[in-house]
């Protein structure tokens, strides 16, 4: 394998990691409060706002049901507004972030809804404010599930990031399409696939391990 090719792969991997890291960070930071809101704002819940809850849920669903590749193209004007360009790694971060937010939010919502309602009642009986319940009870209890949600989000992001290669987004997907597909370099394609598999495996096992450490619900600890 030529040093040039190695360099290309290294750069593409770095680009992918950068896109995933930035989109994952911003997307989950925005997705987390939205997820908490979705899980706590129904009728009779901690922050009851059923109408806003419904509207936010609708927006989340709409974003989730748009195929990612369509989302990338559809929000080009917005992407250009934010980054000044619509191609390249930097531009790809925008749709990746937009796609991450509702994805993570729904996972957060599910993780929080999964917590025994008895804990919320116990906290209320202690005189906790709704905010205290969120931070001291819900987030603490959901930590293993949230860790797994973040893991799943990053894994999906790695997949999405390969897709933005199709629209000049840079990274491993871009490399695979330009070299592996368009220039008939099956060796490059193979390497891209292997690197992606390794990345996903690493993220998944790190996430699983972390979640297990946070999870005190079984006797094994």
């Amino acid at each position: 394998m030529s040093p040039d090719l190695l360099l290309l792969i290294a750069k593409a991997t770095f680009d992918t990691l950068r896109m995933v890291a930035i989109a994952g960070l911003i997307g989950s930071l925005i997705g987390l409060p939205i997820g908490i809101f979705l899980a706590t704002s129904g009728k009779g819940e901690l922050f009851p706002a059923p109408n806003i809850n419904r509207i936010v849920g609708l927006i989340v669903n709409a974003t989730r049901s748009t195929p990612f590749i369509i989302l990338v193209v559809a929000i080009i004007p917005f992407t250009r507004l934010v980054t000044g360009t619509s191609i390249g790694t930097k531009a790809a971060i925008v749709p990746l972030t937009i796609a991450t937010i509702p994805f993570f939010a729904r996972l957060v919502e599910a993780a929080i809804r999964d917590i025994d309602k008895g804990l919320i009642e116990a906290a209320r009986a202690m005189g906790a404010t709704p905010t205290q319940i969120v931070f001291k009870v819900l987030l603490a209890e959901a930590r293993p599930a949230l860790t797994l949600a973040l893991t799943m989000t990053i894994v999906s992001l790695i997949g999405y990031s390969a897709m933005v290669g199709a629209v000049g987004g840079g990274g491993l997907g871009d490399l695979g399409i330009r070299y592996g597909y368009q220039r008939f370099r099956p060796d490059v394609m193979l390497i891209v696939v292997v690197v992606l598999i390794v990345l996903v495996q690493l993220v998944q096992s790190a996430g699983d391990r972390l979640a297990r450490r946070f999870d005190k619900r079984s006797r094994k600890n």
Binding site: D116, G118, A125, R217
Partner: peptide
Amino acid sequence: VGMIFQHFNLLSSH
């Protein structure tokens, strides 16, 4: 006013 519950309602994370 303290309260105790049938299913204890303890935080598994604490």
